[in-house]
Amino acid sequence: MPKLIAKTPLAGLWPITHGALSLSEVVLDSVLSLAPFRGQDKAVAKALKPLGLAFPAPNTFADKGHLRIVWTGRDQAFLINAVLETPAAALTDQSDGWACLRLEGAGADAALMRLYPLDLRESAFPPGRAARAPLNHMASILMRTETAFEIMVFRSMAQSAWHEIAGPMQRLAARTAIA
């Protein structure tokens, strides 16, 4: 009987470096969509408390160790790398549907501003900020950590996102090399 081997969405592609920028894959253990039922916000807050997390405000995310909760839309968040059971919310396992990329290094904001219709300078998009925004033609969730940007895209679009981000990385590195 053949054995199946689980592979990440970007297996074999990462990391790549152009100039000061590095692009890699973030392997997520789990992604759980969390949507509190009407009037159940306090019950959801109580369920999240043992994890050291709270439901995020719009356009934000929070980390507690390797756990993360990120706002993904009105009354919806993704709980990453954690397990939660509560009758106060609709819970949907999204683990196999998403891929996550990390872009880090000086100029990461400049590279991504060529692809996103957002001001990603640190003064406008500080660490802890998240946005549900189009990465060119792909739906994505963009997060700024203390040291990098993390971009979640549908697993089926992971390689397209990889190539989209690699382009500005190369152009910025070439511009820096000339200067």
Rank of each mutant, 00 (worst) to 15 (best):
R144D: 05
A139M: 07
E146R: 04
L135A: 07
W98N: 11
L84F: 12
S95W: 07
A99P: 09
R129F: 06
E150N: 09
G107I: 01
G107S: 10
L101K: 07
E85M: 11
G105S: 12
R132E: 05
D119S: 04
P134I: 01
M113S: 15
M138D: 05
A110L: 13
G128K: 00
R114Q: 12
L135H: 06
E146T: 00
T147E: 06
R114L: 10
T92H: 15
P87I: 10
T86R: 12
L142F: 08
N136I: 08
A131I: 05
P134G: 04
A124I: 01
A90L: 13
L112P: 03
S95C: 04
D93L: 09
G107L: 05
L115I: 15
Y116S: 05
D93C: 08
A106H: 12
I141L: 15
N81W: 13
M138F: 14
E104T: 14
G97H: 10
S123T: 10
A99W: 06
T147R: 07
S123P: 00
D109G: 06
A99K: 10
A89Y: 14
A111C: 08
V83A: 11
V83C: 06
A131V: 00
L112V: 09
L112F: 08
E122V: 10
E146N: 01
V83S: 14
M152S: 10
D119G: 02
R129L: 01
D119K: 06
S123H: 02
R129V: 00
S95T: 15
V83D: 13
P127W: 02
P87H: 12
G107W: 09
E150A: 06
P134V: 03
A130C: 02
M138K: 08
L120R: 03
M152Y: 09
A148W: 04
A139C: 02
L103E: 09
D93R: 07
M152N: 11
T92G: 13
L120G: 03
H137Q: 12
A99E: 04
A99I: 08
P117A: 14
P126R: 05
T92Y: 14
P134H: 04
Y116D: 02
L103Q: 11
D109M: 03
C100R: 10
R114G: 07
L142D: 04
A148D: 13
G128Q: 02
A133D: 07
A106T: 15
I141T: 10
A89V: 14
P126T: 01
P117G: 11
L101E: 04
P87V: 08
I151H: 03
E122G: 06
T92V: 15
A139I: 03
P126D: 01
M138R: 14
R121Y: 08
P134M: 07
E104Y: 11
M143E: 13
